[in-house]
């Protein structure tokens, strides 16, 4: 599995099955600052569950920002679902994210003033496409939210009456996973969503996430500096190895 790193450097498979394809990327936060992320090539196939590992400051979150279309590459090519994000306008990138990407943060993923189901339904409020997809699976958005929550063992009635801030961190992360999966986006991006969980719960959370991704055919890009998780994934990419940028904070090289 540590082989995965070399896999990204090998010859790319046919383009139509690639969900992510990055070429000759060089990203800097400010024009006058140095390059933080320099990737010759990075490919992720449809349906893959990829673990991107790297020490703190190696540019993991920066990469996810590029994939989600929040940051833009001025140099190189960032293709997600065969769309060139680096040439899209800001509004089009926001729409793209709404339609195709589910995002899970490290912690505190939920909007405090919304109920658990409202939090899960939230992506459908910004994307007609995801609303329609959710309604293809269930008769109503609420029903689909409850279905997903059920899959993640969050369907106990007691949870629904409680404000989301009263849920445990692990429970909040499962609600966040349900939200990311709502409306079946093609790409799920997770930025260290397990760092606040202990060992056992980390693994059970990941298994639930894998199952759901597999069921909906979503591709999962999971980022962490915690190497102990890599055994659970099909493939691991070591960012420090493929990142050509000289980082002052990065140790590898």
């Amino acid at each position: 599995m540590s082989d995965g790193t070399t896999g990204t450097h090998g010859q790319a498979p046919a383009g139509d099955t690639a969900v992510i394809r990055i070429r000759d990327l060089a990203f800097r936060w400010h024009p006058r600052e140095s390059v933080v992320l320099a990737l010759h090539e990075l490919m992720v196939e449809r349906g893959e569950q990829v673990f991107i590992e790297g020490p703190s400051g190696s540019g993991k979150s920066t990469l996810l920002g590029l994939l989600a279309g929040v940051s833009v590459a001025r140099q190189g090519e960032v293709r997600v679902l065969d769309r060139r994000l680096d040439t899209l306008g800001a509004a089009a990138r926001d729409h793209f994210r709404a339609h195709h990407i589910g995002y899970i943060f490290q912690m505190f993923n939920l909007i405090p003033y919304l109920s658990m189901t409202d939090n899960v339904i939230l992506p459908c409020r910004f994307s007609r496409r995801r609303r329609q997809r959710a309604l293809q699976r269930s008769p109503s958005l609420e029903a689909e939210a409850l279905r997903l929550l059920g899959h993640l063992d969050m369907d106990e009635p007691a949870f629904h009456r409680r404000p989301v801030t009263a849920l445990s961190v692990g429970q909040q992360q499962r609600v966040a996973a349900a939200r990311a999966l709502m409306g079946s986006p093609e790409l799920l991006i997770a930025d260290e969503p397990t760092s606040a969980l202990d060992g056992d719960r980390r693994e059970s959370f990941l298994r639930l996430l894998f199952d759901e991704c597999r069921a909906s055919g979503a591709t999962l890009v999971f980022v962490s500096h915690d190497r102990s998780l890599e055994g659970l994934f099909q493939r691991t990419i070591r960012l420090a190895d493929i990142n050509g940028a000289v980082l002052t904070t990065a140790t590898g090289g």
Partner: peptide, 16 residues
């Protein structure tokens, strides 16, 4: 600000 980032992650635009 956290709430804003969450909204942005689900596709909210800055104008939202």
């Amino acid at each position: 600000r956290r709430e804003m980032a969450i909204l942005r992650s689900v596709g909210a635009r800055p104008v939202h």
